[in-house]
Amino acid sequence: MHASANIASLDHATMCTASRRATLFLPLLLAPAAHAQTAAPAAAQPSAQPVPALPDRSDIVYVLNSGDATISILDAGTRSELRRFPALREPHHLSLTPDGKELVIADSGGNEFFFLDPATAEVKRRVRISNPYHLCYSPDGKYLVVASLRRDQVDIYDARDLSLLQRLRVGDKPSHICFDPGATTAFVTLQGVRSVLAISLETRQPVWQAEVGREPAGVYWNRGKIICGVMGEAHFVVLNPETRQVERQIPIGRGAHTIFPSPDGRVLYGASRVDSRIVAIDPESLEVTRVYEVPGGPDCIAFDSDGRLWATLRWVQRVGILDVHSGALDTIRVGRSPHGIFVQPRRGE
């Protein structure tokens, strides 16, 4: 159970979606109580001190508040915010390292990665890097591919030492990344030019580009096909990487955005940001099997150890917790424009 949860968390973290936001210091003015938490030793010096008293019997949930440049740490058991500590500018996405020991948080506006111990929230190190928006480790763990939405670039780094192997100038607004299971190709959505771009990891050069629809965002490899969220339309598209043709559409709702698999891989969940819903999709038939109304603009998704779905709600400063069986929805208050989300399974199990 927990091994799969770990794997699922990795997938979810690396596939999170959304778009650019800059830092807003509203909470500094309006919510000093929340920021008072940052005065705790761990929050005040995140690079040096571990966060104390994280629960060992509950999952820990990390939420990147892109709008106010903070990171919320939630207790999944009590459904409460334990800590909120500052990032630099604009954290959007995050990923576990291939060995699972570190959580990499990409701060696009701050031009840096910072590496956390996901069990303790201790900041291990910071690395200056050019505008990291979305990031994904290749399935073989060799490469870290980073999309820079603002700078129209895709960087390929050596995953071991973060040395830059290749910087590609690509089309307008590269936003999200996925790989084929063999780690031969990276697929990147180009939000501004309606396309998916395929990049060979062998030659580190683009090999083809296919048009998929207006403002493509989230992208996911599913059984030999690429499923892509088309934010400017009301459906996902299924792209055949062999023919480079769109084979079908999956109706999701306006602002079709991201796709995440359940921990056991038996269900895909898609988010629509305009109609504010999450849909369950059968990964074999690609039919929508259930629709959940989730107000607030659902975006990135992760799953806790009990199978509950956690989604960032971009426009209402909350995280939604969805029981996918009953459909019950609860929410927790976090920072502004929450985006990337990651669940660290409970310890000792």
Binding site: S19, R21, L24, E215, M231, R273, S337
Partner: peptide, 11 residues
């Protein structure tokens, strides 16, 4: 057809 500016408008 301007979802590309969704975050800008939010700001």
């Amino acid at each position: 057809g301007l979802m590309d500016y969704a975050d800008d408008l939010y700001q």
